Simulated assay, not measured.
Amino acid sequence: MTKPILYTCRGSRGLRCTWAAEEAGVDVELKLLPFPPRFKAPEYLEINPLGTIPLLVDGDTHMTESCAIAHYFATRNGFTDLAIAPGEPDYAEYCDYTYHADATLTFPQTVFMRFALFEKDKGWEDAGQAYAKWFWKRLVKIEQRLEGREFLCADRLTVADICVGYALILARQVGLDEGVPENLKAYRERLTAREAYMRAVEREKAGAAAI
């Protein structure tokens, strides 16, 4: 089986994939790109016309959704503890929280970043703050789920934690931490203390330094 290639930018949603690969023991070739690649690495459009990251190329397989790639790594060589199979307890919850990570959490974060950070010179900061409040309100489901729990599903780390955890990591990076509840900050600390997470961060750092 050939080594999959993961195109990503340091600290982007692709970190979910790098992290999942480390947790699952999948040997991945990382190709770090400058951000945003569609402007700073235009040749990338030849393999991903969207210009988005991450992109996974694994033989004939091409994938562009970070949560899907993380699940793929968790099951590529057979089901690992990172994934929950049909029929297992919390299977439905595993699916729900994995999709919840992008559909509900990182979506308002992305809009906040555009209005409040990337294009703040256009006078859209009020709109950015509205999306910040949207993000904070959407944390309630995770906050309640983690009351008395270490992980979201099946009493173990799964891709759902990696996907949701990234949204909390991003919140700290982009100035959205003031509205993050304390139990979610503690959850984030548990996740980022994992050896596989730290290896993933170091791999991306080293790859970015070589650009």
Rank of each mutant, 00 (worst) to 15 (best):
H100K: 05
A193F: 13
L6G: 08
L6M: 10
P34S: 00
H71R: 07
P4A: 09
K120A: 14
T80G: 06
I162A: 06
I47S: 05
I169R: 13
W19G: 06
M113H: 04
A210C: 04
R138Y: 02
P181C: 09
L146I: 04
T52K: 06
L146T: 03
Y97Q: 06
P42Y: 02
C9G: 00
T8L: 10
A154E: 10
L30N: 01
W136N: 07
P34T: 00
Q173S: 13
Y91L: 09
W136Q: 10
L184V: 11
L15K: 01
T80E: 05
E46W: 04
E46Q: 11
N183T: 12
R145Y: 12
F39L: 15
I69S: 01
A206H: 08
D90N: 13
V159E: 01
A171E: 01
P89Y: 12
V180A: 07
E182G: 08
Q129H: 09
T64Q: 04
A85R: 15
A85N: 15
R149G: 10
P49D: 05
E202M: 13
Y197S: 10
L105W: 06
P108S: 02
P4L: 11
N48M: 04
F112E: 00
C153S: 08
E88W: 14
V28L: 01
K40L: 11
F39R: 11
G128Q: 06
A167W: 05
L191N: 08
L82H: 06
T75H: 03
G148E: 09
V111P: 00
D81L: 15
G175F: 08
A130V: 13
P36V: 03
